[in-house]
Design a protein around this nucleic acid. Structure first.
Length: 231
DNA sequence: GCGACAG
DNA sequence: ATCTTGTCGC
């Protein structure tokens, strides 16, 4: 087993009121400065759904860094416990992600999440929530915007511009491939925006998405039985 | 009140 | 997120 300390979710919100309280309380624990050590393993996490969204399948892919080779992975299945509501994605996806992380053998030094970090209406997207819960550096990499605006982004791979909201720089709009829709990178926990951007670029190969999320996404779609004795 | 709205 | 085949372009 890995050295990750996975908290028990005996209590999980049911209403938006409870969820909002949790977000506004935990947002103060987010660290937006670099508090990471050497990065040897980077993980990607993602979730998919089955049976008309009633079943959540979460997956984690751990890659060696910087060579980006798959060295560990985990898939888990569980009942979906929260609806998708913009601004509250973490309450739908984190239970499964934690369950998948528990099954890892290798401890990731950095986790890249599918969704926003600080680039959130209350500055507490899924990457922040996961990072604070397990106290691991996290980065949010989303495929579309939740909040914020930005100037035009040049079409060449490597270009980026700031994502701003209410006078704050909340993330970076990144061109991960020439002539392809950009990625929205934001701080999750224990990392600065510049460093987060840096790691996202280092995790890119020839596709729009970082290898971490590509592999996690692939695993979240794998068809598996759900033998209870394995979870 | 009218849109916008991660996955 | 998910439903879905071939097809256009680098």
């Amino acid at each position: 087993m890995s050295k990750l300390k996975i908290p028990s979710l005996s209590t999980w919100p049911t209403t938006l009121e409870e969820a909002t309280l949790i977000q506004t309380k935990l947002r103060n624990q987010v660290i937006t400065e670099d508090r990471l050590g050497d990065i040897h393993y980077v993980a990607g996490v993602d979730v998919g759904f089955k049976d008309n969204y009633t079943i959540t399948q979460a997956a984690v892919a751990v890659l060696s860094f910087p060579d980006l080779q798959l060295v560990d992975s985990a898939i888990t299945t569980l009942p979906t416990c929260f609806p998708y509501i913009p601004g509250f994605l973490s309450f739908r996806e984190i239970p499964g992600i934690l369950q998948a992380l528990e099954k890892l053998t290798i401890t990731p030094d950095l986790i890249i999440c599918d969704g926003q970090g600080i680039a959130h209406p209350r500055r507490f997207g899924i990457a922040c929530h996961l990072g604070v819960l397990i106290d691991v550096p996290t980065i949010g990499v989303a495929k579309s915007i939740l909040v914020g605006k930005h100037t035009e982004l040049p079409p060449e791979k490597g270009q980026w511009v700031e994502l701003k909201d209410r006078g704050e720089i909340i993330g970076a709009v990144v061109r991960s491939r020439t002539n392809v829709k950009p990625l929205y990178v934001s701080v999750g926990h224990r990392i600065s925006l510049a460093t987060a951007r840096d790691y996202v670029f280092k995790c890119l190969t020839k596709y729009r998405l970082p290898e971490t999320t590509r592999l996690a996404d692939k695993l979240s779609r794998v068809i598996v039985n759900n033998p209870l004795f394995e979870q």
